[in-house]
């Protein structure tokens, strides 16, 4: 027998259906809205790009941007290394200080040595390094380049 104040089976199922339906519909819409607001977060695949020749590269650091990805080439003798020129602290672009042979980030005064190692200031880790391949005189690096098309600044 049904007690006063307690919900009957019929009412319980009705409430469950109505509230459950609202929750599922709202949740489903919310998930889709979130997917709409959060575009792809995966780093694009690396692509092998020819960036110049060894003979044309001086011993100074050379800053370049390809496909919106900024990087810096550092030559020491016959060895070339490629670093991301984006500071690992909060994402500003580093500059090269030729006298001190260091990278310097103007935003929060972070310093990296010529090997990209963080040596002073707030940067938490070294500069990201990109793989370099030499073929004769040609320099190739592997850059995470976004797909062609889409909206980009």
């Amino acid at each position: 027998m049904e007690e006063r104040g307690m919900m009957g089976r019929r009412d319980f199922l009705l409430n469950l259906g109505v509230i459950g339906g609202i929750v599922v519909a709202a949740g489903g819409s919310l998930i889709h809205a979130l997917r709409f607001l959060l575009p792809g977060m995966a780093r694009p695949a690396e692509r092998r790009i020819r960036v110049g020749t060894l003979t044309s590269l001086s011993e100074e650091a050379l800053f370049r941007t390809i496909g919106g990805v900024p990087f810096v080439l550092v030559r020491r003798g016959e060895t070339v290394r490629a670093f991301s020129s984006t500071c690992t602290h909060l994402g500003c672009q580093v500059k090269w200080l030729p006298q001190e042979e260091k990278f310097f980030c103007p935003c929060h005064l972070g310093y990296f040595d010529a090997n990209g190692v963080n040596v002073a200031g707030p940067p938490p880790r070294p500069l990201d390094e990109y793989k370099v391949e030499m073929e004769g005189n040609n320099i190739y690096i592997f850059l995470p380049l976004p797909e062609q098309g889409g909206i980009e600044a």
Binding site: L37, L38, P39, G40, M41, R43, G68, I151, E152, A153
Partner: peptide, 17 residues
Amino acid sequence: PLILSFLRGGLDVTANT
């Protein structure tokens, strides 16, 4: 990373941002 992507509309600061 989720907050970053939400604020920027992608990984980097672009037209989406």
